[in-house]
């Protein structure tokens, strides 16, 4: 009964563990459709994830899948990609996973420009552990560990990624699900470190506490606050206050790490052989 893209889902594992109205399933859907657009080879693709609600996504995808430790998904993925550069590697992380405990791995994967496609499910909160603040929780938003509102400024994830060296940076939302699919597809087509931030709703651990309503209300919030980047660039900062740009935010070309390494091996081996001959 399911349509074509769902060949990328392990349907026998459904229904999934996520709460009613949780946006993670929408991101997962967008991801499977991106796999469809990419005509992804399931036998040569690895999906790696960290720890968190969102990171459970790897278990629902029909690839070689690796559900790792909190924050470390990119480091595991770096090992896989460097070991077997011919494999396509996707990395799924939560906002806390990628920018809190895994923040160091995030900036270093970007610095290396290693060919991984990172999809960050940003629900502004630590969902799995019940709603503690994350480095992407908006200032003043409420969390169990910030009952009066967070006192810390959040990262701007795309800015962080770009500054650290990522060569493809995009942001989508679960409301703009088709755009999200296209952004993931483009990120995967791009050679180098690609970051796609997916703004998603955690109605249970974030929405309720911040009076944002249910999953549907939070989708509408995304619709109202996500401004296509072409339009956002024309707006005054004051007009963008509280809003965020969506779409392809940054794209550049730079040498990719595993390519560089393969060339390095070739040159080293040639030099070694010649030195031996001489």
């Amino acid at each position: 009964m399911q349509n074509k893209v769902n060949k990328y889902l392990r349907s026998e594992m459904l229904p999934h563990i996520w709460c009613p109205g949780c946006g993670n399933g929408i991101v997962l859907g967008a991801l499977t459709r991106a796999f469809g657009l990419l005509d992804c080879d399931q036998d040569n693709t690895v999906v790696v994830s960290g720890i968190g609600c969102s990171s459970r996504a790897s278990g629902y995808l029909d690839f070689s899948t690796l559900h790792t430790t909190h924050g470390r998904a990119l480091a595991f993925a770096t090992g896989i990609k460097l070991a077997r550069p011919e494999l396509k590697v996707f990395v799924i992380m939560g906002d806390g996973d990628s920018t809190g405990i895994g923040g160091n791995h995030f900036i270093h994967a970007a610095r290396r420009n290693i060919d991984l496609t990172a999809i960050i499910f940003n629900n502004s909160i630590y969902g799995m552990t019940g709603g503690q603040s994350s480095p992407l929780s908006p200032l003043n938003s409420k969390a169990t560990t910030a009952p009066q509102g967070t006192l810390e400024r959040p990262f701007d994830l795309p800015e962080l990624a770009r500054a650290a060296g990522a060569t493809y940076v995009a942001r989508g939302t679960t409301y703009h699900a088709n755009m999200l699919t296209q952004l993931i597809k483009n990120g995967a087509d791009h050679k180098g470190f690609s970051v796609v931030e997916a703004i998603t709703a955690c109605p249970i651990s974030y929405g309720r506490r911040n009076k944002m309503g249910n999953g549907y209300d939070m989708l509408l919030w995304q619709k109202e606050h996500g401004i296509p980047v072409e339009r956002a660039r024309k707006l005054e900062p004051s007009e963008m206050e509280g809003k965020f740009a969506i779409g392809e935010l940054h794209k550049s070309d730079a040498p990719e790490f595993t390519d560089i390494y393969e060339r390095f091996i070739d040159e080293k081996q040639i030099n070694h052989r010649e030195a031996k001959k001489a």
């Binding site: 009964m1 399911q2 349509n3 769902n6 889902l9 349907s11 459904l14 229904p15 999934h16 996520w18 109205g21 949780c22 946006g23 993670n24 399933g25 929408i26 997962l28 859907g29 967008a30 459709r33 679960t174 409301y175 699900a177 088709n178 699919t181 999953g215 989708l219």
Partner: peptide, 14 residues
């Protein structure tokens, strides 16, 4: 509905 159902529960045959 199909692209926004978080649970893969709806499909619209095309």
């Amino acid at each position: 509905c199909e692209t926004h159902c978080p649970d893969f529960a709806i499909s619209i045959g095309v």
